[in-house]
């Protein structure tokens, strides 16, 4: 049982959740994730550890509502408990002083990016962050990112905040202007695909953090598998970060859609039950 200590909404569909998890708070590093199960009947879902406080014994998650489990989680309140939280899982991010690093985060992908930005900055890099979202509401963690970046560029699809345009436009702007030694791109699969096509044009080594469907998170099931460099990799134990140029993006996106019909039906059903309760 892990108690929710704090819950803060960034927008209607994105919230920051601070959770009691003393062992994980102690051992986690940038790039790690946890798997949670809300209750006895719940599904196991992976979430990146956005921050942690080993003294208070807490970890921070940033969650976007996309389906049943995330919606149920965001409907919980501080003081309530989550049945299972296991981690930290995956390899931590490899951090070194590259020089100038371009960190591009899309939507809720900014959450897993934050600890990486922090660590890169601490390692002496010049960090330029590009935050992107469809609209103003979907730009999250702006202040936190600003605190640890040398420069922040904000892009929205509709121009409701920052500059109008896709994340790739913001990335191009930086790359045209100065020498970038390394890029990290985290967000929806489609955004990571096009983000890394951009950096590939300029031969900038690029890391992405894959968010495939998972069950156990310990290498036991293979649900999270995806081809990287022509070989099948398990994202939970071999990743979640990989060399962007090696990832088979079409396969990755195809696999993420495996349960689309079921997820959609489950979500519709969930919305109905919520309505009846209300």
């Amino acid at each position: 049982m892990n108690k929710i200590v704090e819950m803060e909404f960034f927008s209607e569909n994105v919230a920051k959740i601070v959770l009691e998890a003393p062992d994980i708070a102690n051992s986690r590093k940038a790039g790690h994730f946890v798997i949670i199960r809300l209750n006895e009947k719940g599904e196991r879902i992976p979430l990146t550890i956005a921050d942690g406080d080993s003294e208070k014994g807490t970890i921070t998650l940033v969650v976007q509502k996309v389906g049943v489990t995330s919606a149920k989680l965001l409907a919980m309140k501080a003081g309530e408990e989550i049945l299972d939280v296991v981690g930290p899982l995956g390899h931590p991010t490899h951090i070194e002083n590259y020089g100038t690093v371009l960190c591009a985060g899309g939507g809720v992908g900014v959450a897993p990016m934050l600890p990486i930005i922090k660590a890169l900055k601490e390692a002496g890099n010049k960090v330029i962050s590009v935050l992107a979202g469809r609209t103003k509401e979907l730009i999250i963690l702006e202040d936190e990112v600003k605190k640890h970046s040398d420069e922040v560029i904000i892009m929205t699809d509709d121009g409701s905040y920052g500059k109008k345009g896709l994340v790739t436009a913001g990335m191009e702007e930086v790359i045209q202007r100065e020498k970038v030694n390394k890029a990290v791109v985290i967000g929806p699969a489609i955004m990571m695909k096009f983000g890394s096509l951009t950096t590939k044009k300029y031969n900038i080594p690029t890391e992405v953090s894959l968010n495939t469907i998972m069950v156990d998170g310990t290498g036991m099931c293979g649900a999270c598998r995806v081809s990287v460099g022509g070989r099948t990799k398990f994202v939970c134990v071999d990743g979640p970060e990989f060399d962007a140029f090696q990832v088979d993006w079409n396969e990755m996106m195809m696999r993420m859609g495996a349960y689309k019909t079921q997820e959609h039906e489950a979500y519709e059903k969930y919305l109905k039950t919520v309505e009846t309760v209300a």
Partner: peptide
């Protein structure tokens, strides 16, 4: 740690390891 056969198309949807299916 489940083994696969590494044959073409093995990562299509609907193809599980027995561990995933049974789990």
């Amino acid at each position: 740690l489940p083994r696969f056969m590494n044959i073409p198309g093995e990562n299509y949807n609907g193809i599980f390891s027995s561990n995933e299916y049974l789990t």
